[in-house]
Amino acid sequence: MARNGNKVVGFCIFGGYEGVPDRFGPFGVDPDEQGKGLGKILLNICLKQMKAESLHGAWFLWTGEKSSAGYLYKKTGFEITRTFHVMKKDI
């Protein structure tokens, strides 16, 4: 967790979903703090902790490939292994 004074400005966790330790996220940075490298720092600290706990990989289900998070994940070495399509119907 990252703070600016008493305000939480970023967080990054793993293993938070149904006890699956190598599932990464959620992860977020306050919009006012984005673009300063905080996300990169939090992501790398989290991955280092995952490795220290003997996990062999990190995965998550989705993000926008062209989003700032998507670019960060790709620069950090994450690869796309599946693609999902959102379908909807007005009723």
Rank of each mutant, 00 (worst) to 15 (best):
T63W: 08
M87A: 07
W59Y: 14
I80D: 09
G70V: 15
V86C: 12
S54A: 11
L38I: 06
K66E: 14
Q34T: 12
K89W: 09
C12S: 14
V29N: 06
S54P: 13
L43E: 15
E79G: 13
A69R: 11
N4K: 10
V9S: 06
G39E: 10
N6P: 02
L42E: 06
L42Q: 08
T63C: 12
E53G: 07
K7I: 05
F60A: 03
I45D: 13
E18Q: 11
V20Q: 00
E65F: 14
K88Y: 15
F14E: 00
I41N: 01
K89H: 03
L61D: 11
V29H: 06
S68P: 15
G15H: 00
H56K: 09
Y17C: 00
T76M: 04
R3T: 09
A52S: 10
Q49S: 11
K40M: 13
E53I: 02
R82V: 11
V20P: 00
G19L: 03
P21T: 03
V20T: 04
R82H: 13
G19H: 02
E53C: 11
M1L: 09
F60M: 09
Y71D: 13
F27R: 01
F78C: 12
D32M: 14
C46M: 05
V8A: 14
E33L: 03
P26W: 00
D32F: 08
G5D: 04
K66V: 08
R3M: 03
L38R: 09
G77N: 10
D90K: 14
I13Q: 03
F84H: 11
W62P: 04
C12L: 02
E18H: 10
M50N: 03
I41E: 14
N4W: 09
P31R: 13
W59Q: 08
G57M: 13
F24E: 01
F24P: 01
K88I: 08
I45N: 13
E65A: 15
F24S: 01
R82K: 14
Y17E: 05
N44W: 09
M1Q: 06
W59D: 02
D30P: 07
G77D: 06
